[in-house]
Simulated scan of single mutants.
Amino acid sequence: MEQFFTTVLLSIEHFHVLGYWVAFLAALLVILIAWIMLWFVQYYLPRYGNRLWQATVLFGRTLRSRFADNPYVCRWMREHPGSIQFLAKRADYTHFFGLPLTLLVLSLAVTLVLLAEVAEDVATADSIVVVDHIAARLISTFRAPELIPIAIWITNWCAPPIIGVLLVVACLLLWLVNRRFAAVGLVISLLGASLFSVLNKLVFQRLRPDGAVLLEPSYSFPSSHATLSVAFYGFLGYLLIRSAKKWDTRIKLCFVMMGFIFLIGLSRIVLGVHYLSDVWAGYLVGLLWLIVGISVNEWLAATGRIDWNLPVGRYRKIMVFSLMLVAAIGVAGYLFTQVLIFRDLQ
């Protein structure tokens, strides 16, 4: 797979002999195709998601009954009752400690494996490093000046002042809507991801790409902005999805949050402050701690400390709306101020 991406990027790199617009249109076509595919998924999934889930459950029950009728399986079940009981508990989707916890643990394991593979490739200067440098040269060559203020506006959503203020606001909102224990998973996800990212930067000490638009004092691998985008904004998306009642609303919230996280990672690459593998590793680190935070919250919900269906009084709703409005004005002011400061420095 890495060899394939290396070949593709090398081919794109040679597009500069045909002119800027050929490379620009090729990149625009790729983004357009990806957007159309995502639009089809978010359009059809709310309409046919329930049918697909019901069909999957029915297929699982049919498969389980076929296995139960198999004589070899029956004999194995009689000889290993403890293993059967353990597997049955892991596949029970009626409570958190069954199938949900199993899927979370499996997701955590897969994320750890992917993160370890990326870290090993970077440490050993594998082919992924070649892809990084080719992509960095492409970005430096074809970076449009008009995109820089937009990228700065997007990337500052993960600036420490913004994350700090939004964390306080999120905790206050959760307290106002009677879900104060939900802040536990949020804090664990954010702090764990931040510390893990800082430690990895100190371990790998990878230098930033040449030709970066912004001057960043820290090391490059992994991307802290990509890490925080998943760990923090991904968790906020989880809270919204968990509180939503309708299936189509949950799907739309999921895709909006995924798109926002993708744009934050893309802004770091456009600004030239990170390699592709930095952002990919940052996403994995953030996902790792996001899964941990979600697991903690679901455990708290299973033990009765979080009730997602508690009503919110009118007075508290007014306070929630007022707090969100003040936070939105403050964040917007900070973001646009940072863009203006960058323009004045040019």
Rank of each mutant, 00 (worst) to 15 (best):
M1G: 06
F4P: 00
F4R: 07
F5K: 10
T6L: 15
T6F: 09
T6S: 12
V8M: 14
L9Q: 01
L10D: 11
V17L: 12
G19L: 12
Y20P: 00
Y20G: 01
A23S: 06
L28C: 05
L29I: 15
V30G: 09
L32G: 06
L32Y: 09
I33G: 01
W35I: 10
W35K: 07
M37Q: 07
L38F: 08
Y43S: 15
L45I: 08
P46Y: 01
Y48C: 03
N50D: 04
N50R: 13
R51F: 02
G60W: 09
R66V: 07
Y72H: 01
V73Y: 08
W76D: 01
W76A: 15
R78N: 08
E79I: 01
R90S: 11
T94F: 05
P100R: 12
V105S: 07
L106S: 06
L114H: 11
L115H: 03
A116K: 10
V122W: 06
A123N: 08
S127D: 13
V129P: 01
A136V: 08
R137K: 07
L138P: 02
I139R: 02
L147F: 11
P149V: 02
I154M: 05
P161E: 04
G164D: 14
V168I: 14
V169H: 03
C171K: 01
W175C: 09
R179K: 08
V187L: 11
V187H: 07
A193M: 13
S197E: 15
N200T: 14
V203Y: 14
F204E: 04
R206T: 09
L207A: 13
R208V: 02
D210Q: 09
D210F: 01
A212Y: 00
V213M: 04
P217C: 09
S220P: 09
F221D: 05
F221C: 01
L228I: 11
L236I: 15
G237R: 03
L240K: 01
I241S: 00
R242T: 02
K245E: 14
K246I: 00
K246R: 15
K246G: 05
K252T: 11
F262C: 05
F262L: 14
V270T: 06
Y275W: 03
G286I: 04
L288D: 06
W289Y: 11
G293Q: 09
E298D: 14
G304W: 08
R305I: 00
I306C: 04
N309C: 02
R314M: 10
I318C: 06
I318Y: 15
V320Q: 07
V320K: 03
S322R: 00
L323F: 07
M324D: 00
M324T: 06
A327E: 10
A327N: 00
A328R: 00
G330M: 14
V331F: 08
A332S: 12
A332K: 06
G333P: 04
G333S: 13
L335A: 07
V339P: 00
I341S: 10
F342E: 14
L345R: 15
L345C: 00
